[in-house]
Design a protein around this nucleic acid. Structure first.
Lengths: 254, 254
DNA sequence: CACATAATGGAAGATATGTTCTATTTTAAT
DNA sequence: ATTAAAATAGAACATATCTTCCATTATGTG
């Protein structure tokens, strides 16, 4: 970040401080919002942009937006980039993923909505049966749910599509479905959630806020954003959310 | 890859695909930009937003922007708030598990032995085939390995004992087996590891203690101690170890 | 204290962006 | 092949947002 804050007029310094503290906001905010955040008038923020050498807010914002969009390349490319970056020893790699996990947990703590969480737990607690669906990357999570709910004596059924068997008709009114999917989303998971909704079952979505096709299906959305290292993501935060859900439901139903 | 788009008109499907592939662009782009990216006219993208249940692009974008900047209150503050929100409440519970996850990650960073980790990665990298076995609680981890190795084009077979099928004879000399088990240890996992050893395959153990029954079987022991809260454990650290292993092996073999 | 200079806030104007409407094309069904 | 319905593209319209300008207020200096 630019260190020009010294010797700046008061209002401009406020802008500089706010920007330094919330760099990620520039990309998604208007001047008015940024100005309010910094506690100054929009015109002051405007001058700030110009002092920094931009023609205006828009130009500055463009810069931040460009650097923000991350595209997820395919796996060979990800590996290629990782090696180029001189990823070094295995221990260093592990350290990065541990750090990513830590960040994910922090983010989970920050973003989870307690009311939605409570509502999800209530819904699961009064369900006749809990169905779990999560495929591909989300299958680990689904498997954990299935294991843990069973241990808690909560009636549970996992829809794992083994043998391409589709057991969607096992979902009845009065049941609850936990649907887990992350981008790029899995069709089968979304379809099952839709089918569940159609028969009057409740759906709890565990997904990554962004662009989730589960959004139209249910208001009970628990969003988890896993941090990544070199375009690879773990499931640390998601698993923590899962265990919390299971234990809360288990405690309610015993 | 995703097709939420089944049954959508062609242009709208293009929008859906583009959004799924570049979810983070929505927050920082205009309709015109999104439309161009998807290869459609702005008005088509507009209709896409409305089909999704939004009043228009602006409303949809607001959702994405919000979910992106929700990160402001800092982690300790939020965690504290979660805890305060009432002992026994779901949020408080989640806070405890997040904390447990964080502790587990720290512990993993401290206790993992770099040499063993390196050796494990070397072994896996030169294996003809990687077999994964992990049942009950460890099954989530096994499932994650199976998914991630496949993505890395590493030949992988998961021994999930579906239908009580035992495929231990698929394990040959020159293969490597990742055996995952935690107390109380699963007999089948240990047996499979022994059988693998007997035919001359290498075994990598992911387990929770020096006293694990996998110890006599292999020198390649990666021990992870997950912190617990009220006798409930998550798998945050184990999953981070898993992703690190997979990525390291993937980088070695391509 | 008076003056010059710089900084500020508010409002007006310009521009970019979102949204809606309709004629035209495409698709599907009979 | 004909018709009706749906989907699409382009243009017109509405709105949000950025930007500039200028009167007012604050600051520093002789």
């Amino acid at each position: 970040m630019l260190e020009v804050s010294d010797g700046l007029p008061k209002r401009l310094k406020q802008c500089a401080d706010y920007v330094a503290a919330n760099p990620d906001r520039i990309a998604v905010s208007t001047v008015a919002e940024m100005a309010e955040g910094a506690g100054v008038k929009p015109s002051a923020f405007m001058r700030f942009c110009q002092v920094l050498g931009f023609s205006g807010f828009s130009q500055m914002q463009r810069l931040f937006r460009d650097s923000y969009v991350q595209n997820w390349p395919d796996y060979p490319t990800r590996l290629e980039k990782l090696r180029e970056s001189g990823a070094g020893s295995a221990s260093a790699l592990l350290a990065e993923f541990i750090e990513a996990g830590r960040l994910s947990l922090e983010s989970l703590a920050k973003t989870i909505d307690p009311e939605t969480l409570d509502a999800a737990i209530k819904t699961l607690s009064r369900a006749n049966m809990v169905h779990i669906v999560g495929l591909r990357r989300a299958f680990s999570v689904a498997a954990y749910f299935a294991y843990a709910f069973e241990k808690m004596n909560v009636p549970t059924m996992i829809h794992d599509h083994v043998g391409r068997l589709d057991n969607r008709h096992a979902i009845r009114k009065g049941d609850a479905v936990i649907a887990i999917t992350f981008a790029p989303y899995t069709t089968e998971t979304v379809e099952l959630a839709e089918a569940a909704r159609a028969v009057g079952a409740d759906v709890i979505a565990i997904t990554d806020a962004i662009a989730s096709p589960l959004r139209p299906i249910t208001p009970l959305m628990l969003t988890v954003s896993e941090a990544d290292f070199g375009a690879f993501r773990s499931l640390s935060a998601t698993l923590s959310l899962a265990v919390a859900l299971v234990v809360a439901v288990g405690a309610n139903t015993q």
